Simulated scan of single mutants.
Amino acid sequence: MEDSVTYIITFNSSHQALKAESKLKKAALLPKLISSPRAISSKCGFCIALEKCDWPNMTDTLKQLNVEYTHLYTRKLLNGVKHYDQQD
């Protein structure tokens, strides 16, 4: 049973993560800056979690907002266990 899906964006630096958070907030996407999960790679230790967003168009949105990122992931909570899948 799938409980929920969260979208994760990783970055090369904390500066990029903070800049992206600001740009995504201005675009009304409700980003949440979190510590990077051990299951995925993030060079800076931070990533952004997004819920309820237009994910199929996220790469276009990030380009339009001039957001630099390293990878995109989905995080699914299945029976209480988090599963990560790289999307790019």
Rank of each mutant, 00 (worst) to 15 (best):
L62E: 02
M58F: 01
P37M: 08
L29H: 00
L72V: 11
P37H: 14
K25F: 06
Q86C: 13
R38G: 12
L65V: 03
S13E: 05
K23L: 15
I9S: 00
I8S: 00
I8R: 05
I8V: 15
K26E: 12
M58W: 03
H83G: 02
L33G: 09
E51N: 09
K52I: 03
N12S: 13
V67K: 00
L33T: 09
G45Y: 11
I40A: 05
L30I: 12
T74M: 01
L24D: 03
I48W: 02
A17N: 03
R38F: 14
L29T: 03
V5H: 05
K25Y: 08
Y73S: 05
L72K: 10
S42A: 14
T74N: 09
V81M: 13
N12K: 13
T61S: 02
A27P: 09
M1R: 10
S36Q: 06
P56R: 09
G80S: 09
L72R: 13
S36P: 03
M58H: 00
T70H: 04
A20F: 07
H15C: 04
K25E: 15
Q87W: 01
E68Q: 14
L18H: 15
N12A: 12
L33P: 02
S22F: 12
K26C: 07
K23W: 06
Q16S: 12
F46C: 09
S22D: 13
S35C: 08
I34G: 04
K76V: 10
K32P: 04
Y73I: 07
S35D: 11
K82T: 06
L30N: 15
Y73P: 04
L29R: 04
G45I: 05
F11L: 07
L65P: 11
D60A: 13
L78K: 15
D54Q: 04
D54K: 11
Q87P: 01
Q64K: 15
C53L: 13
Y73L: 02
S22M: 07
K25P: 04
S41D: 10
T61C: 09
E51L: 02
K32A: 10
P31D: 02
H83L: 12
T6M: 00
L24R: 05
G45L: 11
E68H: 11
C44H: 08
P56E: 08
T70R: 05
L77H: 11
A20Y: 06
S41E: 12
I48V: 10
